[in-house]
């Protein structure tokens, strides 16, 4: 009977033809399924888990004053469109993509404001404020600034950034390394010379 059941599941393409395995589902998978089954309250948990990710992605792109409202809008949009998510395991990269698209739409609609921000002269001061450093990060290439904001502002580690954005760990590591190098140059920080093999 078990074998026939497995064959039936294979025909239904619900799982590969193998012995049935009991696997623990990630939390977000259970939460997404619960929300789709009608338990709206479960969405609050998803919001708690991924709001820092969305906040960091937006902070790398749009003015700080707009970020909080946009975070709310993005999650409401995600709630309405949750049924279009094919794989619940991909919730984090999916909502990250929504956040980037929304930031792009905002940038297009308020280009003037952003341009003024970018043209601000940032003095080479040893005691830069958080806003000044953030503005320096925003001038970096897109891939670097998002990774640096998630690392330094939201406090995520490289593996966490990779897991939530859907990037490979290798890509995130390269972005962090190169982004940090560029940021040091912009800030006027002299990096330590590489260790020379003595002999």
């Amino acid at each position: 009977m078990l074998e026939a059941e497995a064959t039936a599941n294979m025909l239904l393409m619900t799982q590969p033809f193998s012995a049935p395995k009991i696997e623990e589902q990630p939390v977000e998978v259970m939460l997404v399924k619960a929300v789709l089954d009608g338990e709206r309250d479960r969405f609050a948990r998803l919001y708690e888990m991924y709001a820092p990710l969305v906040h960091g992605i937006l902070l790398a792109r749009v003015p700080r004053d707009e970020v909080d409202d946009l975070v709310q809008d993005i999650f409401l949009h995600a709630l309405k469109k949750l049924h279009t998510l094919r794989d619940p395991r991909a919730f984090a990269p999916w909502i990250a993509m929504i956040a980037r698209n929304r930031a792009m739409d905002f940038y297009r609609s308020s280009r003037e404001t952003v341009e003024v921000t970018e043209q601000m002269a940032i003095a080479r001061s040893p005691n830069r404020t958080a806003k000044e450093i953030l503005d320096l990060i925003r001038q970096l290439p897109d891939a670097y600034r998002e990774t640096l904001v998630l690392r330094f502002v939201e406090g995520m580690t490289g593996p966490e950034i990779a897991a939530r954005t859907g990037l490979t760990p290798a890509s995130v590591r390269v972005n962090l390394h190169r982004g940090m190098k560029l940021l040091r140059e912009r800030m006027g920080i002299v990096s330590e010379p590489p260790a020379v093999a003595g002999g």
Binding site: Y47, Q72, V153
Partner: peptide, 21 residues
């Protein structure tokens, strides 16, 4: 320095007219 800009939790307000599919 940049940690001061970190996300501050705030509740999500879901309007009643939002319908789930």
């Amino acid at each position: 320095i940049l940690g001061t800009l970190r996300y501050q939790p705030r509740p999500l307000e879901i309007p009643n007219d939002v319908r789930l599919r």
